[in-house]
Design a protein around this nucleic acid. Structure first.
Lengths: 129, 129
DNA sequence: CTTGACCTTCTAGTGACTGGAAGCCACATA
DNA sequence: TATGTGGCTTCCAGTCACTAGAAGGTCAAG
């Protein structure tokens, strides 16, 4: 499929998809006319990148994550270790989000329309550190 | 306290703290000698920024979140609506992280040392879209 | 009173996009 | 067959969020 449809299905702008090709993250096939050609696997990788990037993973981290999928040279012990360390990172992110959520929920519950408390937003928000 | 200690306590580099002051996110007080002076409230805000940024919130979003704390002009109805919409965003992020976690866990479970499956990482990873 | 750590501002560079120009390609309609 | 119209190509320039480095001021310790 063309880059336009790939953009639609992955949720990334075409510009970003071309950029990811430039830096070697997801390289499309080419048709005779020079157009990029995307398969379902490409779409999966692009969607993955969109999600991982929006969750705060850096490009190098995403590259690592993708390499879990692609790199057949890597020993399976390494893959396991890498995946597990990322799982731990994700758990950390989830608990930070939970803390943030709790604070915002508290804030909104206290703001039931008329008066505003001397806002708790930062009180416990940044203590978890 | 000086910017160095602020950096240590917030987990942000001094360069970043100065940058956040440049763009008006967290403006420190100044001592007579021109040094920036940080209070606990400043540290809370900076820690908050570090966490929110690492979780994929943009600078404008962080500014909005901080304004929930600062803006005494805003009506409490607005605060409530804003906070609740952010809570929904956070729930979305959490569920995406949970999906990512599940996939990586599956991958690492299958990689029990010797052989590697034809990797599942992208199979369900990007379907949730 | 000097040394070294820490602070200041300023300018410039980087990473990850993002927008725009100039031109090629494909397909529908006159 | 000509002609849009829209999507594709590359390339260059700009932006956002830092990040590194230079040049110089401040301060506590020896």
């Amino acid at each position: 499929m063309n880059i336009g449809e790939a953009a639609e299905r992955s949720g990334l702008p075409t510009k970003t998809i071309r950029y990811y090709e430039d830096i070697g993250l997801v390289v499309a096939d080419r048709r005779d006319n020079g157009y990029r050609d995307y398969s379902d696997v490409h779409i999966h990788k692009l969607s993955f990148l969109r999600r991982a990037r929006s969750l705060g993973f850096s490009i190098p981290e995403c590259r690592l994550l993708l390499s879990l999928y692609e790199d057949t040279d890597r020993s399976s012990g390494d893959v396991k270790a890498l995946a597990l360390s990322k799982v731990a990172e994700i758990d950390q992110k989830i608990s930070e989000l939970a803390g943030l959520r709790k604070t915002l929920k508290t804030l909104s519950d206290k703001c039931h329309g008329d008066d505003r408390p001397d806002c708790p937003i930062l009180d416990d928000l940044s203590k978890v550190n």
